[in-house]
Simulated assay, not measured.
Amino acid sequence: MSLGTALNRFFKHDAAGGIVLMGAAALAFIVANSSLSGGYHSALNTYLAVTLDGEGLQKPLILWINDGLMAIFFFLIGLELKREMLEGKLKNPRDVLLPGAAAVGGMIAPALIFLLFNWGNAETIHGWAIPAATDIAFAVGVLALLGTRAPAALKIFLLTLAILDDLGAIIIIALFYTAELKIDYLWLSLIPLAGLWWCHYKKIHRIAPIILLGVVLWFLVLKSGVHATLAGVITAFFVPLKDRFGKSPLHALEHALSPYVFFLIVPIFAFSNAGVVLSGLGLEDLVSALPLGIALGLYIGKMIGVFGVTWLLVKLGTATLPSGVTWQHIFGVACLAGIGFTMSLFIGGLSFGEGALMNEVRVGVLGGSLLSAVTGYLVLYTAGSKVAKPVAAE
């Protein structure tokens, strides 16, 4: 087998995105604790400016990545959400009930555990949403490593849960992580919004006008104080599912964009944000309220929230487990939901910016995500050898 064929097979595998993401995070950790550390942090804090007659944007590279590149990541999530709502897993409300309720439980329980450790600490309490998110690429990647040992219905359950979890994270960012509002820019943002609506109404088949209007919207939303990544989601919802020729701009764009997001943008984000600096980090820092609240929120909170709500709904007769899925499978997925990584680091950056607290955030996110991944894999590996029987509501 040639190298090109092997690489092509690797990148088509469901686990590829998670593996590349882990590699980028590991590389960040190595570089941040090597002789290259100074250059690494200096490069991330280098200011880049795009201005016209003194007006425009001037930000360090790390914020161009987190506010700019991640807007493309959220754009892809928006495309996926719209597709699933119109013709996929989120179309039938009955199919959404169980994973949807599990996603809500899996956001509330981690936040409560975080608050339990950080209540009364004004410096850290606003990071309560950090352990509430699930990383789709990582979680699905770990599940894919199990191959046929995991039922197909379990992957659908996890995907639906993770998609709804991302939707919840988007809502949280919009409501709780918005800076001081500049209303004039919000009013101006109505202009590209009107253009996007017109493109959708006319079912145009060209993507370029939508992307251009989305970039203008991103700039105005960023200047308004609302987090700019939300512009990516909003733009995605105006991409037509079907154009006037019967083709699908949404499908085409999602298919074209996915490799660049999962194999370039998200790894760049991971490399830029996962560099935990061990120098000066003592045992007391590892078990302080912030990293401990995040790690246990991801590891224990997701288990309790996802599994507990699923168990309650089935026992109440409100829902049934998917065909071929056992309670051990559900517990394994509840563990995998604790892999927060991308979204957790992103919300951590919104909460604390850079500095000592962000380093503690990285410790908590990486620790909790790693424990969740290993536990979830082991639980599902042993469950996969059993004959699964459908579990009906009692």
Rank of each mutant, 00 (worst) to 15 (best):
Q328P: 02
G317S: 02
V261P: 04
F341I: 12
F263Q: 03
F269N: 05
P322F: 00
L298I: 11
G368C: 11
F271P: 00
G297S: 08
L312A: 13
F269G: 07
M343P: 04
F262S: 15
F269L: 04
N273K: 00
D285G: 09
L345E: 08
L366C: 04
V261K: 01
G305R: 08
I268H: 00
Q328F: 11
I300P: 05
I304R: 06
V306H: 05
S369W: 05
G353D: 08
S272N: 02
M303P: 06
L316R: 07
A295E: 15
T326G: 09
S288Q: 11
F271A: 03
S272W: 01
T318M: 14
T310P: 03
F341M: 12
L357I: 01
G367D: 05
L366Q: 06
G364I: 08
A256D: 10
V333L: 14
L298D: 13
G324P: 03
L296N: 11
G355Y: 03
G338S: 09
I330F: 10
G367T: 12
N273W: 00
P267E: 02
L350Y: 07
S351C: 07
L283I: 15
A270W: 00
L350P: 06
V314F: 04
G301F: 07
I268Q: 01
C335V: 10
F263G: 02
I339T: 06
H255G: 02
T320G: 05
M343L: 09
F307V: 08
L321M: 10
G340L: 05
S288P: 11
I300A: 14
S272C: 01
E360A: 12
L283E: 13
G293N: 07
L257C: 01
I268T: 07
G305A: 09
R362K: 15
F262W: 00
H255K: 06
L316S: 09
E360G: 03
L336G: 14
S323W: 05
G324M: 04
L292R: 12
S288G: 13
L366A: 14
A256H: 02
K302F: 13
G340M: 04
T342W: 09
G368Q: 07
V276W: 11
V333Q: 12
S344W: 06
P291K: 14
L264R: 01
L312P: 05
I265E: 00
T342M: 08
G293H: 06
S351W: 02
G355L: 03
V361Q: 10
L350E: 09
L370M: 12
V276A: 14
L281D: 08
S351K: 05
S369M: 02
N359S: 07
S258P: 00
